[in-house]
């Protein structure tokens, strides 16, 4: 249990000392994961809602795919994005490999199915309740989407947080497409993996505690936001 004690002390020191390297890593982690979640949310919410509201050929297949991709292994997502962004791949000309942008793309791929699939479920349930009323009030299906997303916001915040949890916790994808370059693409999870492989377990665990604090802080902020929304809207 010695290393666990050390880990708490290490984590404490890391936070108190505001180590600039660690600060940079934390900020990059937040930047990459929040960007990925934001983009996935902007695509996933309307996509999930559209799948919930419209019936079209292949819809069942799409839903199955979205649900299945919720469990996409990060390493596989990383490999797919690597092959796309590699110089020998279709998007190679943009030179995005081993940059934070590549990490955002890979995490987006991991998060999008979660947000889209859970949004579909939330919106479909709401639609059962709302369909007649909204139609009566003169809303088209397309116009109903923002209304339903807004009314489902409390559940959807949880959905987005689930996406953020996945993004900030994964290491496989960012390691492959980011390369864990010191000061450029090193984020919390890849730093933890690195320190583990260097055998510095207290530091690795300390970084892990800092990561958990970071995720908890984001969740806490979202919780407060949700509570104020709940109070406003009942």
């Amino acid at each position: 249990m010695e290393s666990a004690d050390n880990a708490f002390i290490t984590a404490f020191h890391l936070i108190v000392s505001m180590d600039p390297v660690l600060t940079g890593i934390v900020l990059l982690s937040l930047q990459v994961s929040l960007s990925a979640v934001l983009i996935a949310t902007l695509i996933g919410l309307p996509l999930g809602a559209a799948v919930a509201l419209w019936r079209f050929p292949g819809r069942g297949l799409l839903i199955t795919l979205l649900n299945a991709f919720m469990g996409l292994p990060p390493v596989v997502a990383g490999l797919m994005v690597y092959l796309m962004l590699s110089r020998a791949g279709p998007l190679g000309q943009f030179g995005l490999l081993f940059t934070p942008t590549a990490m955002v793309i890979a995490q987006c791929l991991l998060v999008l199915p979660i947000i889209a699939a859970l949004t579909r479920q939330v919106v479909e349930d709401l639609w059962k309740e709302y369909a007649e009323q909204l139609k009566s009030l003169g809303a088209s299906r397309a116009r109903a989407i923002p209304t339903l997303l807004w009314d489902g916001r409390i559940s959807l915040v949880t959905t987005v947080l689930a996406g953020f949890g996945r993004a900030s916790a994964e290491v496989g994808a960012v390691l492959i497409v980011g390369g864990n370059i010191d000061g450029v693409t090193r984020v919390m999870t890849t730093a933890i993996a690195l320190e583990t492989s260097r055998g510095d377990l207290p530091l690795a665990l300390g970084l892990g505690l800092v990561l958990m604090l970071m995720v908890a802080a984001v969740n806490g902020a979202a919780f407060l936001l949700g509570e104020s929304a709940r109070r406003q809207a009942g």
């Binding site: 309740e129 007649e132 909204l134 009314d151 916001r153 009942g234």
Partner: peptide, 13 residues
């Protein structure tokens, strides 16, 4: 306009 037996009110003010 139509008023239903159980109106669906939106989750807002």
């Amino acid at each position: 306009a139509m008023v239903f037996q159980r109106p669906v009110l939106l989750r807002r003010s």
